[in-house]
Design a protein around this nucleic acid. Structure first.
Length: 320
DNA sequence: AGAATTTGACCTCC
DNA sequence: GGAGGTCAAATTCT
């Protein structure tokens, strides 16, 4: 695609994203052709072709979304990467997963912690100076002291694990950096349908002197503040830690059709990360990436993504 | 009262 | 055997 084809309404970051995705799409097509020509993998050519086809389909979907001016990602088909790598593994994992397997294999309820660790599940690591709300509802299920780590690691699972079987989990750990950062590890994809919470960007600072921000782009959320704290409840409840929070709302009345609150000229993201992950589930695109970001507008800084992903340099500018 | 969090126990993986 | 991940009862919060 040529940049001259872009609708004027598309921000440059989105254009970059589309360009990168298009590049990946072409490379995948190229790979398929190479695989088709290869006789060595003939026995598996159908499955390989299917996998490539799924990848291409994901590119198509993502590109069509980015190309459209609509900010709604609700209709995007979601294909977990785990499915692509090993078809059927999702169900397999689910059937033999911890909670369910405990109940089916051992009628005695007393056996606790009987589960299968998902060692090969999809993961995405994010390092952020402030806590991020990805728009999903998380429920804390544990915390643990980690070796050689000053701070405890917090474990969260999707709130819809019980009612919808959503297997997404995340771990939040405060690093020992100066200033401290949050390492957020997402595991598994959201299979739940409803995003009960409004998309938010949490800009909660570990630095006591720093201001903290909660940006909400929708006025229909449940308890927005709660998610902020739930990411690090120990920080919230401990006055010594002192995690001040300030809430900025982007209400419907002041918003434009563009849905996006910031101007690109302000060096802030045109595509809030929470939107990406909540609706489109952007981890499908940037899985296994590591990035760090800080903001420079409104008194804080933005660093561009420092990591890379399977498509090369991560094209999105993010504020978290 | 129901939901969310805390916390000790227990399991898997290395 | 130790570290990390998860379960689930107990506790706290709304």
């Amino acid at each position: 695609m040529e940049s001259s084809c872009w609708p004027e309404s598309l921000p440059s970051t989105r254009i970059k994203a589309i360009q990168k995705l298009t590049q990946g799409q072409h490379l995948t097509s190229k790979l398929r052709e190479m695989l088709r020509r290869s006789e060595k993998i003939e026995p598996d050519i159908n499955s390989v072709d299917d996998v490539v086809g799924e990848i291409l389909g994901m590119f198509d979907n993502t590109l069509s979304i980015l190309n459209s001016s609509s900010s709604s990602f609700e209709e995007v088909p979601h294909i977990p990467t785990g499915d692509i790598r090993s078809p059927g593994s999702w169900d397999d994992q689910k059937s033999e997963n911890y909670g369910e397997s405990t109940k089916t294999l051992t009628p005695l309820k007393v056996k606790r912690g009987c589960y299968k660790r998902r060692k090969d599940s999809w993961t995405s690591i994010k390092i952020t100076p402030r806590l991020i709300d990805d728009g999903h509802a998380w429920r804390k299920y544990g915390q643990k002291v980690i070796l050689n780590a000053t701070h405890q690691r917090n474990y969260y699972r999707c709130t819809h694990k019980t009612d919808q079987g959503c297997r997404a989990t995340k771990q939040v750990q405060m690093t020992e950096d100066e200033p401290p950062k949050y390492k957020i590890t997402y595991s598994g994809h959201h299979t739940c349908n409803n995003l009960l919470r409004s998309p938010l960007i949490i800009l909660d600072s570990p630095d006591h002197k720093d201001n903290s921000f909660v940006l909400s782009f929708e006025g229909t959320g449940l308890n927005n503040n709660k998610q902020v704290d739930s990411c690090f409840p120990t920080a919230k409840h401990d006055p010594k830690e002192g995690f001040p929070s300030l809430v900025f709302r982007h209400n419907e009345a002041s918003s434009s059709d563009d849905y996006l609150p910031w101007d690109l000229t302000k060096q802030v993201p045109s595509e809030p990360m929470s939107m990406m992950s909540s609706g489109l589930d952007h981890e499908d695109i940037i899985s296994s990436e590591v990035y760090s970001s800080t903001c420079s507008t409104y008194g804080y800084e933005i660093d561009n993504i420092i990591g890379s992903n399977v498509f090369g340099d991560f094209p999105f500018e993010m504020c978290s």
